[in-house]
């Protein structure tokens, strides 16, 4: 009988070596020996009755050992086969990962919208709401109420498109200030983004561009508040190391008026091509709201004061993304639109 046991042991080993090429054949092999009904090892037990009673215990023990051994061998075999098959599956799915990806259909907001949203985020956090005026304005809101009467030389600063003697395409989003101040009481904190128009069409000017006007009217607003607020803003947009500089300028609707420069974010103020060697980049115009403008809107200029600023969104976006020609922003060239994804 012992001979039979070693025979089985031997045929298991030979079977594994010769037949077990996959999990399925290994399973068949296992069934041949370990199937609970017809397995060769199970069959041995049936032969027990042919043995002498005293040998039965020893034989049973040996069969059990064989069974235990075979079970382990087959489990081990199954594990190996599984690994082998997985390995094979992986091999079969081998690809060249350097082949170009499938195109993903995802569009972008316009760079101007992206920039506009970033600016809105910063100022919304400071408590600004957003007011969008109309592109067609009348002369009063665009000029007269903003302290720019008919014979004012500042009308020359902006070449205006007229639609009728009274109506025009707004030359500045500042016109929104007046509508807001006429219709609400301080405290006022608004941001007024929108398209504006000037009769200028050359390499660096587009007849339509986008401005964002900011206005704060409250008690005790000072030039220091203006600087503090804008300093806060430029740090959020251009980085925490950015600093601001004010210098005198002139707008009819602010007094004092300033131009605001930021330290060059390209060279950190050392001087480079972007800042033309000055270390500073002009980004916006601002000032303390002219008393007359407040009074034109029925706001008591003794009790309240205000600050206002106007940002050119194209310029801000062009500086931030390195876009070298303003015309590119209005040509809808997918080669341009696909590049800027900074939402």
């Amino acid at each position: 009988m012992n001979e039979k046991l070693s025979q089985i042991r031997q045929s298991i080993l030979v079977g594994i070596e010769k037949k077990a090429t996959s999990r399925a054949t290994a399973f068949e092999l296992r069934k041949q020996f370990l199937d609970s009904k017809n397995g060769e090892i199970g069959q041995l037990m049936k032969e027990m009755k042919n043995l002498a009673a005293e040998d039965r215990a020893e034989f049973g023990k040996q069969v059990n050992e064989l069974k235990k051994w075979a079970t382990e061998v087959f489990e081990d075999l199954d594990k190996k086969m599984k690994e082998k098959e997985l390995e094979f599956k992986y091999q079969r799915e081998k690809i060249d990962v350097t082949i170009d990806a499938d195109a993903q259909e995802k569009g972008n907001l316009h760079p101007i919208t992206q920039m506009r949203n970033q600016l809105i985020d910063v100022f919304a956090g400071m408590g600004f709401t957003i007011y969008e005026g109309t592109e067609i304005e009348n002369d009063y809101y665009n000029f007269t109420a903003l302290n720019t009467p008919a014979d004012h030389p500042a009308r020359d600063m902006q070449d205006t498109f007229y639609l009728s003697p009274e109506f025009l395409l707004r030359t500045q989003t500042s016109s929104g200030q007046i509508h807001v101040m006429e219709n609400s009481k301080p405290p006022i904190k608004i941001l007024s983004p929108g398209k504006v128009f000037r009769s200028d069409d050359d390499a660096t000017h587009s007849p339509m561009f986008t401005q964002m006007e900011g206005l704060v009217v409250d008690k005790k607003i000072t030039l220091c508040d203006l600087k503090g607020m804008l300093d806060n803003f430029v740090k959020k947009i251009y980085g925490e190391d950015t600093t601001t500089r004010l210098r005198p300028s002139y707008f009819p609707f602010t007094e004092p008026s300033v131009e605001v420069d930021v330290s060059c974010f390209e060279c950190g103020g050392k001087g480079c091509k972007l800042c033309k060697g000055t270390g500073w980049i002009e980004i916006l115009g601002a000032g303390i709201v002219n008393k007359k403008v407040l009074e034109n809107c029925g706001i008591d200029s003794e009790e309240y004061s205000g600050l206002a600023f106007g940002i050119g969104i194209e310029r801000t976006a062009m500086l931030k993304y390195g876009i070298n020609n303003i015309k590119l922003l209005f040509e809808s060239d997918l080669n341009v639109l696909k590049q800027i994804d900074d939402n």
Partner: peptide, 16 residues
């Protein structure tokens, strides 16, 4: 001119 941030202004709610 120093940086101040509306020390006397009233709080307003911002956003779209």
């Amino acid at each position: 001119i120093v940086d101040t941030f509306l020390p006397d202004a009233q709080v307003t709610m911002g956003g779209l």
